[in-house]
Every structure is written in structure tokens, then in C-alpha cells.
Simulated scan of single mutants.
Amino acid sequence: MADYQETTDFNSYVALGDSFTEGLNDPGPDGRYAGWADRLAQLLAAQRPAADFRYANLAVRGRLLDQVVAEQVPRVAEIRPDLVSFCAGGNDILRPGSDPDEAAERFEAAVLELRRHAGRVLICTGFDTRGIPLLGLLRGKIATYNGHLRAIADRNDCAVADLWSLRAVHDRRAWSEDRLHLSPEGHQRVALLAARSLGLPLTSAQDPDAPWPAAPELSVAEQRRENLHWAREFLVPWVGRRLRGESSGDHVEAKRPELSPL
């Protein structure tokens, strides 16, 4: 294990993962996606002179756990950051026939490697999919995988951003139109949860579970129209890619492949 002091005063941060960490559906000012990891990096940089903080995001949409391990984890040994976030396996769990027990074994092997080269490792559990069309059917598998992730964190002294317990994301406004990726405000809530998990000082206005403003309820007819639009625009293309063996991440490269100042 690397000889690092446990501290919230991080000089460098590397984010690993798939579309969740790449930040899909949270457009940034530079035209690239931002996302919770970029937002967390901003919170970390605010703890010290901005010029002293560096950040890399190696996450690529559509990546399975083994791809993240093969393509992204080895870079941590080269960079040796103070902090690495490792959120992977969600795309595996979505696949028919996947085994959360077996996926967790591969996840822990990667965590052991990361702990050798990073000062602190942050992992994320999966979201609670209760009430979400189709994904709700996988709730048991996600809960099983989450149980393993928490145990892995305990055994290996990792910080945990527990997305399952984040009540704020049960609001539809936390999700983008495709219902698979967070909205900008959803990404902000996750960034605040991750910051709190790392022990960063937050104000009362930065509560990740702060209540949402009141919003009008959709009628049954409006919900039906939304569901039909979602199925046509997002579900059918997603199923089509699976049947063709394609990934949304084909030909996509990491947006911040090197440590650099924000």
C-alpha cells in the first residue's frame, strides 16, 4: 500500500469509470460534458490554491468493469494521485445473466491495485431503481452488488458515496430525459455527496439531500406520453445497440486523459 497520509487536502484527483463519471447529459461551458466528478474536482480545488490542484478524468461511456480495469486502472500507477474515484460495474449489472457476486470479486481486485498507487480511493454504490421502468426489475441485483461494495470499502479503507441512500435522486428532476443519466442538478447532488463522503467541509446550503422546490404533478395522460416518448427515443435505440453488439463509447476517448489544472 502506498505511504500516504489520510487527508482532505488533495493535490491531485483522477476519476475512473463509465458514462456516470464521464458526466453524460451535464453540458459544461467548454462544450464537453462536465458531471459530478468535474464538480467534485472544483470543490476539492477550492480547498487550496487553484494552481496547486490537478485533475484527470479517464472515464468513457459504455465501458464495462473489465474495460475500466484494463484501460484506466493502470494509468493510476503512472500518475499516483492523492485521490482516485472508481465507479464501475453498473453496465455489467444491467446485462442479462450477469453475476453481481463475481463482478464484485473483480472490482475488489482492482481496488487492491488502486490502493497501492493512490492516497485515497472513493467508490460509489449503485442507485436505488425502485419505481424506475425496467431498471426496477434489477433492484435486487443492484442491492446485492452494493452490499459487496460496502464490504469491499470496509476491508480496504475506501470512502463510499452511497448513492442508494441519496433521496434527492428519487425526484424525476435529478434525471435527464433518457432516464439513465443524471441531469445537471443530479450531478451536483452526487458531487456534494462525494465531497461529504471525503470529509470536505460543506455549508448548510450544500446539503446533497436538500428538498427540491415544489413542482406540479403530471397527470396520468402526461406520464403516458412521456413514457411513450422515452421508449421511442431512448429505449429502442439502447436495445438496438445491445443486439448489434455496439457501445455508446465506441470511438470515444477520455475527455481529460492527463493531470492538468482546472
Rank of each mutant, 00 (worst) to 15 (best):
D209C: 04
A210M: 09
G249D: 07
G131Y: 01
C158P: 07
L122R: 05
Y33H: 10
K141W: 05
E102W: 11
E233Y: 14
A2L: 14
A205H: 10
R80T: 12
L137R: 15
W36G: 00
R256A: 14
Q188V: 04
A109C: 08
L218P: 00
P81Q: 06
D26H: 10
S98Y: 02
V76S: 02
D128Q: 02
G131T: 01
G140N: 12
R54M: 13
R116V: 06
V14W: 09
G62N: 08
H187G: 06
G89E: 13
E233W: 15
R150T: 09
L135V: 09
A88Q: 08
L134Y: 13
P74R: 12
P74N: 09
Q206C: 06
Y13H: 07
Y13V: 03
F86E: 08
R95H: 05
W164L: 04
P96A: 13
T129P: 15
L64R: 13
F53W: 06
N91H: 02
N227P: 07
R167N: 12
R224I: 04
R172I: 00
D162T: 03
F107W: 02
A221Y: 00
E258Y: 15
L24G: 10
D101F: 09
R75P: 03
D82K: 07
F10P: 01
A143M: 15
L262C: 05
E22D: 08
E185W: 01
A168L: 01
L166N: 02
D9N: 11
R150V: 15
Q42P: 04
R150Y: 08
P74Y: 12
L83N: 01
M1I: 14
L198M: 08
N227L: 13
S12H: 05
R172A: 11
A254P: 10
D92C: 13
E185M: 08
A254I: 13
V68H: 06
P133W: 01
V190L: 11
R244P: 06
L137C: 11
P100N: 04
E233F: 14
G249P: 09
L64K: 11
N25M: 14
R242W: 09
G62A: 10
Q206T: 08
A205G: 09
T129M: 12
D207G: 05
L58S: 08
G97Y: 05
E246I: 01
L43D: 11
P81E: 06
R32N: 10
S248H: 11
A191T: 05
D99P: 00
R32V: 10
Q67H: 08
F53Q: 03
A205N: 11
A50W: 07
L163W: 04
R116K: 14
A70Q: 15
A151E: 14
G126V: 15
L16E: 10
L43I: 04
E22T: 07
R120A: 13
P211I: 05
R32C: 05
S98C: 07
R39D: 08
L112W: 02
D157I: 07
R224K: 12
C87I: 15
E102V: 13
A34H: 04
L94K: 03
P184Q: 04
L58R: 04
D207C: 03
W238V: 07
E71Y: 09
E185K: 09
T129F: 13
S165W: 00
I93C: 04
V160H: 12
E246S: 12
L228H: 11
R189V: 05
